[in-house]
Design a protein around this nucleic acid. Structure first.
Lengths: 154, 154
DNA sequence: TCTCATGTAACTTTACATGGTACATGATGA
DNA sequence: TCATCATGTACCATGTAAAGTTACATGAGA
């Protein structure tokens, strides 16, 4: 099963966006995510629709953060991405007629639900601003040139 | 992302196996899982190699449980299946040079690890015997004909 | 020795996320 | 006004992993 890394990728570019005021184009963001500008637009569309980011066309256009990073949690971003699957496993059959399978589903289902709830709770406890501060600490330790274009250049 | 339901499927047929002493053929198990006999053998191969089940060739052959169900946990089965992915999400890059992405990875990674650990802990707390008892309670409530062949017939 | 059943390699099919192309829309600036 | 830049999005191509399938070897009864 291929694992979904959109949340990770989106967080990465959101943090870069949070650290500068000028809009960043899909093309620049695509370089940072090592992907295609269209994939960036497609992924960011959900964040735009839920008001987390803003996009502007034309000269000087691109993407900017539309809300205070201290008021954006990982859970907000998870929702904006369309609630992607959290777990790679699931029950085989949601409404089995077989009582044996019902017993299996109940046990597995409650374990799955607990793990998923834990992860989403963690997501709601972390803000973009906290991640940015975490970056600041790393930067203070081993400062260097971390301009988006420079660090992600090939 | 397609979700893995092998654990669910395997538990289902293990419970059926635990409730009768004669060996069950791959073909009979495949009917219960609505799949193919070869898929069953492939999936069960890991359980056989770790000693959870036994297989016998020839007339009267098939699959039987090789250990006391009270001593088989869901975690044992998870291991026998080759530790399939638990989470559908992951970090985009395991060892990024970008400090921004490192900050993201740390936050997401610890949340992922907690959720995965919780699920595996739950797995190790549940035995096949407990699931079988759960079935017994359901059966007592609305008893019917639960022979493997009957209940899964089309 | 015939039949039944597993063991397994190899191939095909299916599902789906991602990658990529094309073009419409709209904003900016000369 | 017109050329340019950037997003919006429909549509198609591609890569990949799980599941399904076929084929045949192996071994165990009857």
């Amino acid at each position: 099963m291929r694992r979904d890394s959109r949340l990770s990728g989106v967080l990465h570019i959101l943090l870069h966006m949070a650290r500068q005021s000028e809009p960043l184009t899909s093309e620049a963001l695509a370089r940072a995510m090592a992907t295609n500008p269209v994939v960036v637009r497609r992924t960011m569309a959900g964040l735009r629709d839920t008001g987390l980011v803003h996009s502007e066309k034309g000269h000087g256009g691109g993407w900017t953060i539309a809300r205070d990073p201290a008021r954006i949690t990982l859970h907000d971003i998870y929702l904006a991405l369309g609630k992607p699957d959290v777990l790679a496993m699931s029950n085989r059959n949601d409404a089995p007629g077989c009582l044996v399978e019902q017993a299996v589903n109940e046990a597995l289902g409650s374990a799955f639900a607990e793990a998923e709830a834990l992860l989403l709770r963690r997501f709601s406890e972390v803000t973009l601003a906290q991640l940015s501060e975490s970056f600041d600490r790393r930067f203070a330790k081993r400062g260097a040139d971390f301009a988006l274009e420079t660090i992600h250049a090939e």
